[in-house]
Design a protein around this nucleic acid. Structure first.
Length: 678
RNA sequence: GCACUCGUAGCUCAGCUGGAUAGAGCGGCAGCCUCCGAAGCUGUAGGUCAGAGGUUCGAAUCCUCUCGAGUGCACCA
């Protein structure tokens, strides 16, 4: 609604500027005035034009005002201050349109490939991984087609680095540190399963221990590092006992990660694995393509001699600089032909670096490696779809996930440079369209406050106590596990639900507590903008009051309770507004308290559009909170069930119904359910 | 050393492409449950938007510098 009216206003202003002043392409700013008395929509465009037209802002505003009044849905246009144009909506018309669900549709063609989670499959998920997965999952919900929008085709990928050094480490731990045989490892996994223990938890501790073990004995240090390297090679090579054990372990952990994420309503469509990228030889194709496109070449001199490197953007300028005569005389002629800043893609020993593999993988994502693809096989069944995993020989019938029109990689900000390398490679290869459609959805890490670390029982040095926050580290076993946090949240919510709703059976109370816990956790991870470091604190994360998920859920539950007690169906309450004469009830102090909520409700599309454009789910989270706040205002100023005026009661019931509908919708985008009671 | 991000109320954070009196939550203080559920609401105190210049009709927002914080900068993975 707001989106539609704003567009109509912008279009009309553009028309007037063209016909009256012969101006085009003016960037017209709009804003929402600070209070309702000043209207619903405003523009300071007259200030902007004053100099260009050499005319007083107020005079320009006056010219424009006359032309804007006739826009459908606009009640009046007023000039305020030195030249603000304040637009007042036709409130009754707006309410009817919102109630009827009219809105600007958001849609687009072409697959959006969203990659998130991507936890190394050698340990349990922790709070940092939760932020990643919740951000990615929420962004997918914002884009996906649903009852509100046509949206975009979306596929969600969770990239699995199953041949990396982290997996090698836990294999080393079991085979060499603990001296278990492959058969004993198989038995261990069965035993853990029988005892109901989580494999990912078991490996969490083991991974921390093996990291120590490498360093523990100075005499053994080199030998142990050699074992690690050897294990890594066997892993990459495949078809051996080491690789088989690694596969068994990483697959078991992967199942655990999917289970953890499913508790939060997070699901995936495809799990591409590093092992297939290796064994299906993605890199060989990418390498040929890069050479053909002139971005990969063999370095013949300097520190990178014998490597295949990629020139970095801006490097040519430095080349010219270093080939100036005075430099050449000092440094020798060789310097002018080498680029010391070039990125090494293939090492002098012939192995490819991470960036190289990543370039190959991203070429595949955009359908730019036509001769390579994964094999696909089903891995996990969700209630309404299947998650596929990469394999060498897959099913004949399968969906395909490459050839994306746009990709979104949810990866933390510490990967900014490596991600930029991939984009630059695409651009250098001439795939500038792909480079433009590559979005690194970066976010700052989740860290622990020193205080929190101490409370968890970790030893914290005096130096670390002075730091603002401490980075979580799987290698050190330092962090809060995702399942532990969720368990604590559910327990805390359950205490409240048990006390408040003794009439519900235990299964129902547990479900309610779980929905509240998930709401609290998802909201907590989403309310911070992406580039804010979350210094994790139990007190804040476990809070159900103030700016939290449960606050928003509570508003929705209250709205539902009103309708239930009034014995009207939400749909009927909303439809009743269509034939009602609303004009008398939406103005004055009483009317404003109702209208303020409708105005907030009118902003759904504009908020969604903004959140998608900025890839910033926090915008939606914030809006959900504002909606709930506005509903609580309405709730306290208007006693719906005691209202005796028939028309006004219809309006109030309709308002509660539409508020419930929209809050539920917005919470749905955040992956948060509305409990049946709270 | 270089690059990137940031510095807003006691604490944690918002502040959209520059726009009207800089906003929330928590915490503090004072209140509100015979009335749709108090996981709620009302009121109140609290800010030199790190500092200094500049651009602009207008700057928390853009530019420069200074101070402070964080992250990233291997033929590692």
């Amino acid at each position: 609604m707001y989106r539609t009216l704003k567009q109509a206003l912008l279009d009309r202003i553009a028309d007037v500027l063209r016909s009256k002043y012969d101006l085009s392409g003016v960037n017209v700013a709009t804003e929402q005035p600070p209070n309702l008395q000043l209207g619903e929509l405003a523009t300071p465009v007259a200030f902007e034009l004053a100099k260009r037209l050499r005319k007083a802002p107020r005079a320009i505003a006056l010219d424009l005002a006359g032309e804007l009044g006739s826009i459908a849905g606009v009640a009046s246009v007023e000039i305020a201050g030195a030249g603000y144009l304040n637009i007042k909506f036709d409130r009754a018309a707006a309410v009817r349109r919102i109630a009827a669900g009219e809105h600007f549709d958001l849609r687009g063609e072409g697959l959006r490939l969203i990659e998130h989670t991507s936890i190394n499959p050698n340990k349990a998920a922790h709070v940092g991984h939760l932020r990643n997965a919740i951000l990615g999952d929420t962004f997918a919900r914002l884009l996906r087609p649903d009852g509100y929008k046509a949206g975009y085709p979306v596929a969600v990928q969770n990239y699995i680095d199953n041949t990396g050094v982290q997996v090698a480490d836990v294999v080393v731990a079991l085979l060499h540190m603990e001296g278990k045989s492959p058969a004993e490892i198989d038995a261990l996994l069965l035993e853990l399963k029988a005892r109901g223990e989580r494999v990912d938890y078991y490996l969490w501790d083991l991974y921390a221990r093996v990291s120590q073990w490498y360093q523990a004995d100075p005499a053994q240090k080199d030998a142990r590092k050699a074992i690690r390297l050897q294990t890594l090679h066997e892993l990459e090579e495949g078809n051996n006992d080491t690789a088989r054990i690694a596969d068994v372990l990483s697959t078991a952990v992967l199942h655990r990660h999917l289970a953890t994420m499913q508790r939060l309503g997070i699901e995936y469509d495809f799990l591409p694995r590093e092992s297939e990228i290796l064994h299906a030889h993605f890199w060989e194709s990418a390498r040929a393509l890069m050479i053909e496109r002139g971005v990969l070449y063999e370095e013949t001199a300097g520190k990178n001699k014998g490597c295949w490197v990629m020139r970095r953007p801006g490097a040519e300028a430095r080349d010219l600089l270093s080939s100036r005569p005075e430099q050449s005389e000092v440094e020798g002629p060789a310097v002018s032909s080498t680029d010391e800043d070039a990125k090494v893609i293939v090492r002098s020993n012939g192995t490819v670096t991470y960036v190289g593999k990543d370039i190959a993988y991203h070429l595949w994502k955009f359908g730019l490696l036509p001769d390579r693809d994964f094999g696909y096989t089903p891995f996990h069944k969700y209630p309404d779809h299947t998650c596929w995993i990469s394999t060498l020989q897959g099913e004949a019938e399968h969906p395909h996930f490459g050839r994306a029109a746009a990709i979104y990689n949810v990866i933390d900000s510490r990967q900014n440079d490596p991600q930029a390398n991939v984009v630059e490679a695409l651009r250098a290869m001439g795939f500038s369209d792909a480079a433009d459609r590559y979005t690194h959805v970066n976010y700052a890490m989740v860290a622990l406050t020193p205080r929190c670390a101490v409370d968890l029982g970790y030893a914290v040095s005096d130096e670390d106590m002075q730091r603002p926050y401490l980075e979580v580290s799987g290698r050190k076993g330092f962090g809060v596990k995702a399942d532990d946090l969720l368990d604590r949240l559910i327990a805390a919510a359950k205490v409240q639900v048990d006390a408040r709703h003794p009439e519900d059976d235990d299964a129902q109370r547990l479900q309610t507590a779980t929905e509240i816990a998930v709401g609290a956790l998802r909201y907590f991870m989403l309310k911070y903008t992406r580039n804010t470091v979350i210094a994790f604190d139990f007190r804040e994360a476990l809070s159900f009051e103030g700016e939290t998920g449960p606050y928003v859920q509570y508003a929705a539950v209250r709205a539902a309770n009103i309708l239930r007690k009034a014995e009207v169906l939400p749909e009927a309450a909303a439809t009743a507004l269509e034939t009602l004469d609303l004009a008398d009830h939406l103005h004055g102090a009483e009317g404003d308290s109702v209208w303020a909520l409708w105005l907030q409700l009118s902003r759904v599309t504009i908020v969604l559009e903004q959140a998608i454009a900025a890839a910033e789910p926090a915008i939606v989270a914030r809006y959900a909170f504002q909606l709930a706040q506005e509903f609580n205002n309405f709730y306290h100023r208007n006693h719906v069930l005691n209202e005796t005026g028939r028309d006004r009661r219809t309006l109030l019931l309709g308002t509660a119904a539409v508020a419930l509908r929209e809050v539920t919708r917005v919470l749905g985008w955040l992956g948060i359910a509305v409990p049946q009671s709270m």
